[in-house]
Design a binder for these strands. Structure first.
Length: 269
DNA sequence: AACGAAACCTGCGCGC
DNA sequence: TGCGCGCAGGTTTCGT
């Protein structure tokens, strides 16, 4: 499901709902979501949520002593409700607050992950350890260097969260279209000027998408019933067979490293 | 070292 | 209607 703008939308929504709340206990209905030893995970009980941050596609709940890291992967989402309300199918983790409200984690495909890590270590171990910078926080030269040393397709490089974080399949397609770069171009063959176009396009796309609450194509909802509006701004992704908004030639769909990829082969060189 | 394929899961839409 | 197949906005692991 979510890429950076969707996760940011979830973060902002959650902030309004759970900041300052104390976690009484957590019910785990599907254990594989929890990547921390289950006994250690119980340390979450009694801690207060002081802040919710985000790095790339990771949600970061700052608690008293620990940090709860959540990755939604393809279809993770939250529901917020009262303790007595029914737990529905696909709700795998239930966070009970001391005021008897609950936050449930819903994930049809069960790909999502949660880690509980001590505050002083969460950047140095676990899922954030090797996470690359977001498009907003690296320079043209830095990205050029990272791209230039790799021979694989630019699309695969931009999807690699160790290189640059936050982009997924939708926003990479949109970024490369706006930068007029073909997704199968090899990293080591791109010029500084071309990489710069990519970086600026990525920043622009992500900012616009955040301002519109993300993209709802199939299953994404920031919370129950909260949809994004960036799908109205998509120029190529999901537009197979439709005319390119710039040149009018038809958008094609191809596979790049196994991912469905939309491209205007006239505009993107 | 670097790359591609498979794996992790479930549901949906399509063609027959 | 029913079945099988391919596909889905992500990431890690395994094999070459």
């Amino acid at each position: 499901m979510p890429e950076l703008p969707e996760v940011e939308t979830v973060r902002r929504t959650l902030e309004h709902l759970v900041l300052g709340k104390r976690i009484d206990r957590v019910t785990i209905l599907y254990e594989k979501i929890i990547q921390t030893d289950l006994l250690d995970f119980e340390k979450i009980n009694g801690q207060v949520i002081h802040e919710i941050k985000r790095m790339g596609k990771h949600l970061i709940f700052m608690l008293d002593h620990d940090v709860l890291l959540i990755h939604l992967r393809m279809e993770g989402r939250f529901f917020y409700k009262k303790e007595h309300q029914e737990i529905k199918k696909h709700e795998h983790v239930i966070i009970h607050f001391s005021d008897h409200d609950i936050l449930t984690y819903h994930d049809v495909r069960k790909f999502g992950t949660m880690h509980l890590i001590p505050k002083d270590k969460y950047l140095d171990e676990g899922p954030l350890k090797l996470l690359g910078p977001e498009p907003s926080s690296l320079t043209e030269d830095e990205l050029y260097h990272k791209v230039h040393i790799r021979k694989t397709e630019i699309k695969a490089i931009l999807l690699d969260q160790h290189v640059i974080s936050g982009l997924g399949n939708i926003y990479v397609d949109e970024t490369l279209f706006r930068a007029k770069i073909h997704p199968t171009r090899k990293g080591n063959e791109l010029s500084l000027e071309e990489v710069t176009r990519i970086l600026y396009a990525a920043r622009e796309v992500l900012l616009k998408a955040i301002s519109l609450g993300g993209t709802t194509i199939r299953t994404f909802e920031a919370m129950d019933g909260v949809h994004g509006r960036f799908q109205n701004e998509l120029l190529v992704h999901t537009k197979e067979g439709e005319p390119c908004p710039v040149c009018g030639n038809l958008i094609i769909k191809m596979k790049v490293k196994g991912r469905g990829t939309y491209v205007c082969e006239t505009c993107q060189i």
